[in-house]
Design a protein around this nucleic acid. Sequence first.
DNA 1: TCCTTGATGTCAGCAACTGACATCACCATA
DNA 2: TATGGTGATGTCAGTTGCTGACATCAAGGA
Lengths: 212, 212
Amino acid sequence: MGRWEPNARARLEQAAMELFQELGYTRTTVEGIAARAGLTERTFFRYFTDKREVLFSGSANLEKLIIEAIEEAPKTTAPLDSVASALEATTPIFEERRAYARKRRAVIAAHAELRERELIKLASLAGAAAASLRKRGVAAPTADLAAEAGIAVFRNGFERWVDDKLQRPLSAHMQAALKELRAVTAGTGSSSPRRRTTNTSRRKRTRTQRSV
Amino acid sequence: MGRWEPNARARLEQAAMELFQELGYTRTTVEGIAARAGLTERTFFRYFTDKREVLFSGSANLEKLIIEAIEEAPKTTAPLDSVASALEATTPIFEERRAYARKRRAVIAAHAELRERELIKLASLAGAAAASLRKRGVAAPTADLAAEAGIAVFRNGFERWVDDKLQRPLSAHMQAALKELRAVTAGTGSSSPRRRTTNTSRRKRTRTQRSV
DNA sequence: TCCTTGATGTCAGCAACTGACATCACCATA
DNA sequence: TATGGTGATGTCAGTTGCTGACATCAAGGA
């Protein structure tokens, strides 16, 4: 197994995170990352297709988890509920490394190239979730929208979780986001949404802040 | 005004689209684009920050339209309805250039870098829409989710519109997507969603195919 | 002991992008 | 009408991300 120093991949990832925090994304060079990991630029590109990719190696694992969770759910579960519970099944992963998640998120938020990469990873998750739903007989358009809605809930809940000074659990934030989404989409869509809608959203907001 | 050949920007955009279609994105070089437009690589980078950006100059305009439409809507309108109608206000732009939209979409779909860029543009639209909603007094979490839901509907409707052999209008596809989203999020979220949900989505699917 | 194998290094090269400076067409205005 | 300013473009050199081709080197097996 280990003829050279082991865990080259992990070493590269850690070196990258450190340098991104120290110098920022643009000013850290791939050569620098590799050097800190005791490797060569060329080797970096054997592990990661991209300079960006070094921050996203976990997403493959995440995708697998989500797919499995959707497939394991009882087939009678409503599409969006399948997705929501699958996403909730992934929360322990993040909960274990809250501090790391914060740092990583700060780095990503600071650079557009990284935000792009994150978005496409999330889109990929949505695509995988939609495919899983279709496998269970959900119609394609329904599956797509349920998956995208689920991912929106995930993103939203994740953001609130990372910023939450009270450190309430991620799953609670995600549930709150889901409730909120349901409230938002519950409107009539056409006739006289006057007071009713306004009240609904106000009530929802308060309720969210209490329950999370 | 025009001392040199006018419309350098437009020339670059057109040259880029042509070359992307002829050679694909990776095999066309910025130098090649500039040459076809009668300009220099350096000049290309004065108009576009990126090789990718040459395909997305319209998004600023789109963002402006959406913001205006949201701000003009009556303040009693529900958040998601504001967003939906704002998006619908943009449909004529696409409807005018359906053929172009198809080509462009094919180019983007074929290359990950371009898909990333498109995703961040859409995220930017969602952010702008959310900001507009907040300006009207909508609570932040509600605004975010309404905006994201709206964008999901937009994407979804757009995809269906582009692929629709019957060439039904974009706005109809978007309305259908919105209905579908409402159906998907209408579930209970917890207790015995058995038959009920399944039936709902099936009914929804049929209704969609008929009404669009 | 030799040979295979997989991880790494070396080197050359292209293309995306940037900064600094030059040029050139037009316009105003003296 | 000459002159000088201005904004769009060109030129050039340089960095960095990324790739292909080939060399090397440390195990482990025949």
